[in-house]
């Protein structure tokens, strides 16, 4: 279930990580792994196609740079990406609080049988 949850929210997670500034793929994945405290257990290589897809739709942009002696593609949020992140973040909070509200509600057996 953890993997599915991460996969379903991968775009939001990637945009969220890149809100902190431009990063190359390995740094994005390391941050994602660190911030999710191990919940992120997707095959790391599948994150790159997701980054490419977000770039295709204009939410990310990238440049090739030499970092620490290696040629790396450094991703950054576009303005459109920031807007999309804000929207997705709002939707996620609404969804999470709705789920939380359901899980916190006390079961009412009598009400259910009435």
């Amino acid at each position: 279930m953890g993997t599915d949850l991460v996969k379903g929210q991968l775009d939001l997670l990637l945009l969220g990580v890149l809100r902190g500034g431009p990063r190359h793929g390995y740094a994005v994945i390391s941050d994602l792994r660190d911030h999710t405290e191990g919940t992120f257990d997707l095959p790391e290589g599948t994150v790159y196609p997701a980054l490419h897809r977000l770039q295709d739709v204009g939410l990310l942009a990238s440049d090739w740079e030499d970092v620490a002696g290696r040629r790396r593609r450094v991703y950054r949020l576009t303005d459109e990406g920031r807007v999309a992140l804000a929207g997705e973040q709002q939707r996620w909070r609404s969804f999470a609080s709705a789920v939380d509200a359901v899980l916190r509600a006390r079961p009412s057996v009598a009400g259910g049988l009435a």
């Binding site: 190359h24 793929g25 390995y26 290589g45 790159y48 196609p49 290696r70 040629r71 790396r72 593609r73």
Partner: peptide, 11 residues
Amino acid sequence: ALLSEAEAHLR
């Protein structure tokens, strides 16, 4: 591009 990124990641 994918190969370059994969190689940098794996290294």
